[in-house]
Structure formats: structure tokens, C-alpha cells
């Protein structure tokens, strides 16, 4: 049950998580997935990351460029653009507010 919850939670914040891992460094699909997992989001699915990237790109929050590679496939890198940074900032604030409320709530419960 907990796993399902984590997945549910993830759905709501995956956009934000993807924007966050692209804040400091551009990345390609699998690279982004790896960063998310390394950060602790073990449950994140490959298809979800790929789909999210496509959607953020279509919504104009990301730029993309292809980096040719001698060995292995060409990689499509994604980068935050201005709109993406603005979105990251505003959504990030919403999330932080929400998260602190949740934290308080859970702490109250724990005391009770």
C-alpha cells in the first residue's frame, strides 16, 4: 500500500522533480532518470520520466538539443529555459509550503 502511495505522490511532483534535477545541469532522458533515482526517488518509472520530459518540452518549459556520440546512440539533451526556471521557482514554493504544512500535521499527530 505504501508503494502505491509513493507512486501517487510521485505523480503530483514528478514535473517539479524533473525541473529540479535540470536546474544545475542539462541532461538526457536516461541520465535524468538516474539522477532522480540517485536522489532517492527509487520508484520513478522510465516511461514516466520520458513522458514527463516530452510534456514539459511541449509546454515550452524545456529546450532540447542533440549531442552526437561516436559510440552509442545520439543523445537528446534537455535544458531549462526561462519559462522552465520560472515554473520551477513558483511550483517549488507551492511545494515547500505544502510540504511544511504536511510536516507540521504529521508532527502534531505524532505527539498526540
Amino acid at each position: 500500500m505504501l508503494r502505491v502511495d509513493a507512486t501517487q505522490l510521485l505523480k503530483g511532483v514528478l514535473d517539479l522533480a524533473v525541473l529540479a534535477v535540470l536546474r544545475d545541469e542539462d541532461g538526457y532522458g536516461y541520465d535524468i532518470l538516474r539522477r532522480l533515482r540517485a536522489a532517492g526517488l527509487e520508484e520513478v518509472g522510465d516511461a514516466s520520466v520520458y513522458g514527463t520530459l516530452r510534456r514539459l518540452f511541449n509546454n515550452g518549459l524545456l529546450n532540447s538539443y542533440v549531442v552526437p556520440s561516436d559510440e552509442g546512440p545520439h543523445r537528446k539533451y534537455y535544458a531549462l529555459n526561462e519559462a522552465g526556471r520560472a515554473e520551477l521557482q513558483s511550483s517549488g514554493k507551492v511545494w515547500q509550503g505544502f510540504a511544511s504544512i504536511m510536516e507540521d500535521l504529521l508532527r502534531e499527530r505524532g505527539k498526540a
Binding site: Y28, G29, Y30, D31, D46, Y50, G72, P73, R75, K76
Partner: peptide, 12 residues
């Protein structure tokens, strides 16, 4: 981009 993306997954 899925073929390229899957190639990355497979290369892992």
C-alpha cells in the same frame, strides 16, 4: 525519441 531513449536504457 523513444528508440534513442531505449538504447540508453539498454546500454546500461
Amino acid at each position: 525519441d523513444l528508440p534513442e531513449h531505449l538504447a540508453e536504457v539498454l546500454a546500461e
